[in-house]
Amino acid sequence: MSSARPDFQTLVDTHYESIYRFALSLSRREADAADLVQQTFSQWARKGHQLRDPSLAKTWLFTTLRREFLATVRKAARYADEPPGEEAGHLEPHQAESLDAAEVMACLQKLPLEYREALTLFYLKDVSYQEIAAVLDVPIGTVMSRLSRGKARLRKMLAEDHA
């Protein structure tokens, strides 16, 4: 199924807030996140017309932003992550309700990269499992595994914060 190619403003208005939240969870700094979003849309302005299927624009944006981020990480080597481990966590909805957005983002940012990128996309809600797998370039089973472990660790941290 083909869809019409969105104009630039529509694309920005539809996705830039979600893209920014993803960038913020990856880069952990607002200025870096804004730079990443700008680099991503700059690439779209230059190369977006080459995308054959306009319905993939959202996946293209998230994938491009992640690639830009990873390139920065490799070059700067300043985002050393702790190795993943098994954590169990439980957080009741009413406990989550008492947290503010900054606390949730701060805990998300403490997760190892492989968990926080999957979880952030998961919490954006309008990104499907298939799209998460495409953005992260991993099988969908890997996505499910990272979500499961990431959620457990995030909830544990948030529960500790709540306590």
Binding site: R21, A34, P93, L99, A101, M105, L108, T120, Y123, K151
Partner: peptide, 16 residues
Amino acid sequence: ETDAVLARKLAEITPP
């Protein structure tokens, strides 16, 4: 339900 709450919290984060 907890995921829904967390997603709503994250959606409160606004870009510059």
